[in-house]
Write a protein that binds this DNA or RNA. Structure first.
Length: 263
DNA sequence: CGTAGACCCTGGAAGC
DNA sequence: TGCTTCCAGGGTCTAC
């Protein structure tokens, strides 16, 4: 479900509610959501700890705990983290509850792909941080024979971009998802760089995109879905050139674009 | 090196 | 009202 702007919004809504709280109890109802360690070990390493900070890295949420533990959370397609009053009933797809005494954090995930770990994989730079530069992007583009859609979705190249924002970024940049990365001109690489920053920033400003399941930690939807120009718009007319938008499969995912004005 | 497909799941929408 | 098929904000693995 969530890409960088959605995870960032979850972090911002969750942090003021849980930073400084102590985890008094953890209930796990679906063991497979705990990755790499047993439920017993997970519980042992988390219960009694204080939440020191909440961070985001790409599409991962990082929960820093006292005792030098960091829990990483990935919501995949349909995961939600909801902050609720103490004693709130577990719902059909609630797979874990963290009890803070006055509040509870419920992990809810229809498709059961998301989960918790103590590990964090190596991924590329944060596209909205200074570490992500035009020079870095140019170097990565030159070294790749992949198409642009695949490059944007590659978390090792840039952290946090998913299917919606990849399509919107390519539209913003006026570039076809089928273009081979290494074939971009200097100007095109710069257009792509600027589009990445612009679209993700706008996504955060609108608190993410709610098409199906996404809500923040306070169960609120985002509003960026109203500003989408190509994602899910196949069959509609391009806002830039008035030609018909299409959907094709690239890099294993649905790709929406304008074959007329995305070169 | 790169891509395509299967897979992990549930459920909503569309097609018949 | 079915029943079937396709599709979904992700990532990992295998086969080619």
């Amino acid at each position: 479900m969530p890409e960088l702007p959605e995870v960032e919004t979850i972090k911002r809504t969750l942090a003021p509610k849980i930073v400084g709280k102590t985890i008094y109890r953890v209930e796990v109802y679906l063991p497979k959501i705990i990755k790499n360690v047993s439920v017993a070990e997970f519980t042992r390493r988390v219960v009694g700890k204080e939440i020191l900070a909440l961070k985001r890295r790409g599409k991962y949420l990082l929960i820093d705990l006292s005792g030098k533990e960091t829990v990483t959370v990935h919501l995949r397609m349909t995961g939600k983290l909801l902050i609720l009053p103490n004693g709130s009933p577990k719902e059909k797809h609630t797979h874990a509850i963290f009890d803070f005494g006055d509040l509870e954090l419920h992990f809810n995930d229809i498709r059961q792909f998301g989960g918790f770990s103590f590990e964090m994989p190596e991924i590329g730079p944060e596209p909205l941080d200074d570490e992500f530069t035009l020079e870095y992007l140019k170097t990565k583009l030159k070294a790749s024979r992949k198409n642009l859609k695949a490059v944007l979705l590659d978390q090792k190249i840039i952290a946090g971009i998913g299917n919606i924002y990849a399509d919107e970024i390519l539209f913003e940049a006026g570039l076809s998802p089928k273009r081979i990365a290494a074939g971009l001109s200097e100007d095109e690489a710069e257009e792509l760089f600027k589009a990445i920053r612009k679209v993700l920033t706008l996504g955060i400003e609108h608190r993410g995109t709610s098409i199906r399941d996404y809500v923040d930690a306070e169960n609120q939807q985002g509003s960026f879905q109203r500003l989408l120009k190509v994602y899910g718009k196949n069959g509609s007319l391009c806002v830039r050139c008035n030609k018909v938008l299409i959907r094709e499969r690239h890099a294993g995912r649905s790709t929406h674009y304008c074959p007329h004005c995305q070169k």
